[in-house]
Design a protein around this nucleic acid. Structure first.
Lengths: 245, 245
DNA sequence: CGAATAGTGTCTTTAAGACACTATTGA
DNA sequence: TCAATAGTGTCTTAAAGACACTATTCG
């Protein structure tokens, strides 16, 4: 078993004794969704090195020796975007991917995380190939991605779709404050459907704790000005907003 | 960084070069539920060695060098129970637990799996401390378990409860064939509620593909003989069987 | 004004829950 | 016979969906 040298930050762990368990590299990978230009986008990087040089990949990196998995995911997210803090942002574990040959260099187990961001979270500027970009989701789903990242992305999308049904996470996609139409737009783009605006409006207002009125209204735009809301205290929806079945 | 020697099966990986990433041990842990004696039970082992000597723990073990995570989980499950094959059994990834100090001996990341078994899956006989036992769930939830296994168990229970709502997995708890009352019993024990037998009966029969009649009936027992069913082809329930909210 | 979007009222349909009632067995 | 469990019918209630209608803005 040979493992190519690969230096991560400045951490090099030297280990010279026989080990009693197979050593694995553990990474976190991030599926970060946002809405911009009226379409769902995912945060990607372009690989500058072999393997999979030139392909799109999910942002991520090695978990540090004394770092919690959740902390590693939050750290990578902060490094890749200029979102101020991880507080007003949803980050959850998606699943773990550890097929033996998924990384040809070494045996790697990747813990994938799913995040929803409002559009203010623009990627960190940078000209190197590893800087993150927002990629339109629909196009990205039909490209070849590095490693098993396309599978992870598909799983992340399905999780996001399911979560909108019974949680208030759609509000995480909206900058604050937002209108009911903004919120509806999230559902329509993530589910790739259309929703009756009138029934949706009534439904959201009837869901205790989903949104709270700010008292303000939108100033400009076609049509009647809309009320502005902020996210309410609820996290789960009873009853859920149902997808077509 | 020192790691105590610890031999797993007969696999010893010798690694003598500087490594460019922090080495982790990767394990799988299993939350296996079954119903016996009219109560939900979970498969546990009793730890025979330090750390946490004498405490209950979830069955599990190291992932092998060239083994997929799912395969490792299935292998451990087959090793601990005498269920014939993994075919008629539900096994899904639950989550990954990797807090730095969760195993005091070394940095370990554990990928937890959730399984539902019909009662025919009795644990492997054996007198050593590591042999698996069915433990009543309610009692187990109030014991101190090894590592973070109590947290994993709680997460597994919540996942199981949620999954019964919108999937046909309750049938995985029933030996084949089963009655509608058997199926209702699964819901009642996992959710710790009572369900109206008459409404449940109608609801299950109205769910396309949930169960299929075998044409047979139960022979003995109090009351009118019940029809026997086998699991149908459906995996998802539309509409779901709702929990109280 | 008309087009566009916000928001309300109300009817229909679907599904959940309560519960009376019949069916078929063993003790 | 009664107690127990299986299974059906039907009414009530809650929520989803269709859609007419009013409200308020911009061009």
């Amino acid at each position: 078993m040979t493992i190519k040298g690969f230096i991560v930050k400045s951490t090099i762990v030297t280990y010279t004794r026989p080990m009693a368990f197979p050593p694995f590299a553990v990474t976190v990978d991030l599926v970060v969704f946002t809405i911009r230009d009226d379409a769902l986008h995912v945060l990607t990087i372009r690989r500058g090195e072999s393997p999979f040089k030139g392909r799109k990949a999910l942002p991520g990196g090695f978990v540090k020796v004394n770092e919690d998995l959740d902390t590693a995911a939050a750290r990578e997210l902060l490094e890749e975007t200029n979102i101020g803090s991880v507080d007003r942002l949803h980050l959850e574990q998606l699943g773990t991917y550890g097929t033996p040959k998924r990384d040809p260099r070494m045996r790697t187990v990747s813990v994938a995380y799913l995040a929803f961001a409002a559009d203010l979270a623009t990627p960190v500027a940078g000209t190197d190939a590893a800087s993150a970009q927002w990629s339109p989701l629909s196009a990205t789903l039909s490209t070849k991605m590095a490693f098993d990242h396309l599978t992870i992305l598909q799983d992340g999308l399905e999780r996001a779709r399911a979560k909108l049904e019974y949680t208030t996470l759609a509000a995480s996609f909206c900058s604050n404050p937002f209108t009911i139409a903004d919120l509806r737009h999230v559902y329509e783009l993530v589910w790739d459907t259309t929703i009756d605006p009138r029934n949706f409006h009534r439904k959201v207002l009837a869901s205790e704790g989903f949104v709270e009125p700010t008292g303000e209204h939108t100033s400009a735009g076609r049509g009647r000005p809309a009320q502005l809301f902020r996210p309410g205290p609820a996290t789960q929806l009873h009853p859920p907003v149902r997808r077509q079945h």
